[in-house]
Amino acid sequence: MLRYATLRILGAIPTLLLVIAIAFLMVHSAPGGPFDRERVLAPEVERNIERAYHLDESLPEQFSRYLQGLLHGDLGPSYRYRDYTVAELIGGALPLSIRLGALAMALALVAGVSAGMVAALRKNTIIDRLVTGIAMIGISVPVFVIAPLMVLVFAVFLNWLPASWTGGNAANRMLMPVIALALPQIAYIARLTRASMINVMNSDFVRTARAQGLSTISIVRYHAIKPAMLPLLSYMGPAIAGVLTGSVVVEEVFGIPGVGQFFIRGALNRDYTLVLGITVFYATLVIFLNLIVDLLYGFLDPRIRGR
């Protein structure tokens, strides 16, 4: 197991380098630069700014400068948020994104798995139809419709909850963003769980267990849950990474200073270092989470452990 994990981590390094190189080339080849506005800078002024950020160097020079910085944990200065480094911006936004993401994921898991299981065990009944129907809506209605609608109803008209992050107290301002973040995940997880559970409940070993006279509850609890969770597990890696790095829409609607908004603003403003920094961070996170999922797989599925 340890040897496997070490190999996987070593194998991630070339992947990460490739991601960095491609991202670097992509942001630099996008038309326009970080300092272009309708108020075009005088050539001398532009030269001074490019010199200050080493943008006057050749691309290979800039790339090697970036890699060297990266080795020392330095993601460079932000071009748009000139008073801050990229590491400071990500570091400042991350705790909040993690807190929101973790809560949303927890809510999504509890609600999604429960709904999915109930639907699977009551297959083709009203309950099942209801769950799958709602899940379908949850997947198809985009967050940029649901989130502002929630604000209008609960903040503007009913005045129960704050309309933004800075408008409420520490507890009530979390509620709407967490639910908005969790909704599509709940729907997806419910569908995944339902399909997987139906599959498992139809398999031979469950039929054997039934033949031996075990109750449905015991079958689910002791035999079916673990294998039924496997497809969900492989979905969790990317899902967690996605939720943790924040949802741009949710952040914009509720005014939350998370990582997601920096990513989008960075891309639109051609804030090269900021976009690169978040990409590198995101790539690392996905690789790391996938590794954990693979290790957990071995733990849950004896067939994989044996190999």
Partner: peptide, 20 residues
């Protein structure tokens, strides 16, 4: 004085209407 970052005018208006 609090100067709030409000890049989205619609979200900003909702905050105004909610009294924030």
């Amino acid at each position: 004085v609090f100067h709030y970052v409000t890049p989205e005018p619609m979200a900003e208006l909702n905050r105004y209407r909610a009294g924030e």
